[in-house]
Amino acid sequence: MIARSWWATATPDGARRYEEHFRATVVPDLRAVPGFKTAYLMRHDEGDIVRIHVLTLWESMTAITDFAGNPPDAAVVEPAARSALLTFNTTVDHYSTTVWS
């Protein structure tokens, strides 16, 4: 299993808007991709800034490439997401999961 990790920042209102976008658009789109397993949207509030971390789990790098294209480390950030965020990484990190329960 491969974990795909991405980071962004937002205002509290932007984080709320991003969460709405994530629930309404991102998750349904991901569920349609063969090899997608699950997604986590996490936030860490730091006063006027919210750090956002998205972690998705995939069966293989092939499934990720089918989703993200080539190169697979390019972040997929739709215009609706961009408008809610202050900053975001344009690339992602991939991790091979070695233990899970």
Rank of each mutant, 00 (worst) to 15 (best):
W100I: 05
H53G: 04
D66G: 10
A75I: 02
G47D: 09
A39M: 07
W6Y: 04
I64G: 00
G35L: 06
P34W: 02
R16A: 12
S83W: 01
M42W: 10
N70K: 11
N89Y: 12
T56Q: 01
S60G: 04
T87N: 13
F67W: 14
M61R: 13
Y95K: 02
R4S: 12
V33T: 14
Y95A: 02
Y40R: 14
T98P: 00
E78C: 08
R23P: 00
R4W: 06
T11Y: 10
D48V: 08
T65S: 13
V99C: 06
E46G: 08
G47Y: 14
Y95M: 07
V26T: 15
T65M: 08
M1F: 09
W6Q: 06
A39T: 09
A24C: 10
R51K: 14
S5E: 09
A32L: 14
E19A: 14
T62Q: 11
P12G: 14
T98S: 04
A10I: 09
T65L: 02
F67N: 01
A81F: 01
Y18M: 12
H94C: 13
F67M: 04
S96V: 08
M42T: 11
R43H: 12
D13T: 11
T87W: 15
E46N: 11
T38W: 07
R43K: 15
A15L: 07
D66R: 06
L86C: 09
M1W: 08
T38I: 04
S60M: 08
V99K: 12
R82K: 14
S96W: 09
A63P: 03
A32T: 10
H53L: 06
T56W: 11
T98M: 03
I64T: 03
M61Y: 09
L55A: 09
M1Q: 06
A24Y: 05
K37S: 05
V92A: 00
V50P: 01
P79Q: 15
V76I: 15
P12H: 14
V76P: 03
T38Q: 08
V77Q: 02
P34Y: 02
D29G: 15
H94Y: 03
D45R: 06
L41P: 00
W6N: 05
A81Q: 05
I64K: 00
L57H: 10
F22C: 06
A10Y: 04
S96Y: 11
G35W: 02
N70L: 08
T38A: 09
P71C: 01
A81P: 05
S96F: 10
A74L: 15
V50M: 07
M61E: 12
F88L: 04
A74E: 15
P72M: 02
L41Y: 14
I64L: 15
R31C: 13
R4T: 07
E20W: 05
D93Q: 11
V50H: 05
A75T: 08
